[in-house]
């Protein structure tokens, strides 16, 4: 059975016909070609698929596409203002070598931004480490991800985003 779905993704209205079982992440990747959102597991634990739905971080493999009907979705592709100007959190990851293979990175960045906002830009190492429970990285040992997020929080506050 196919169903129609429409939502706003990265500021643009999109719609499509999907099987009812289609996950939000499949809709983003396969229907919209937004392949920056990744799938790293089948038990909703790796966090590679984290996007923002109505401003809150969500694992897009835990949501059916039709459940996001009418929602405002932001993916990693929608974060940077322009090709030249990265979001402060993206810039912080680059500056602090917070990524290696890049596969977990989109989910990490999306989770990080939500974490910063939930803690009102005030983050210490312990809070960040605890807050990343839902995101797996196999490359970095998290050391530089933690550094990136603490630096990114300050940069977001300074930039007012």
């Amino acid at each position: 059975m196919t169903m129609s779905v429409s939502m706003t993704v990265n500021g643009k209205t999109v719609s499509g016909n999907v099987e009812a079982r289609t996950l939000l992440v499949q809709f983003l990747r396969e229907h919209l070609g937004l392949t920056g959102t990744h799938v790293g597991c089948d038990t909703s634990q790796c966090g590679a698929c984290v996007v923002h739905v109505d401003g809150i971080s969500v694992k897009s493999c835990t949501l059916l596409a039709v459940q996001a009907e009418g929602a405002k979705v932001t993916t990693i592709e929608g974060l940077a203002k322009s090709a030249e100007e990265l979001h402060p959190m993206q810039e912080a990851f680059r500056e602090n070598h917070g990524l290696q293979c890049g596969f977990c990175t989109p989910g990490m960045v999306m989770s990080a931004i939500d974490l910063v906002k939930r803690h009102n830009y005030q983050l210490d190492e312990e809070t960040v480490r605890h807050g990343l429970e839902g995101n797996l990285c196999r490359c970095t040992g998290y050391h530089n991800i933690v550094k990136s997020i603490i630096a990114g929080a300050a940069a977001m506050k300074a930039a007012g985003v």
């Binding site: 392949t35 993916t75 592709e77 940077a80 990265l86 993206q90 990524l99 890049g102 990175t105």
Partner: peptide
């Protein structure tokens, strides 16, 4: 700083 980062950070990998 890494050359490859920009594409990974913007979902263009």
């Amino acid at each position: 700083r890494r050359t490859e980062d920009r594409r990974f950070l913007t979902g263009a990998g």
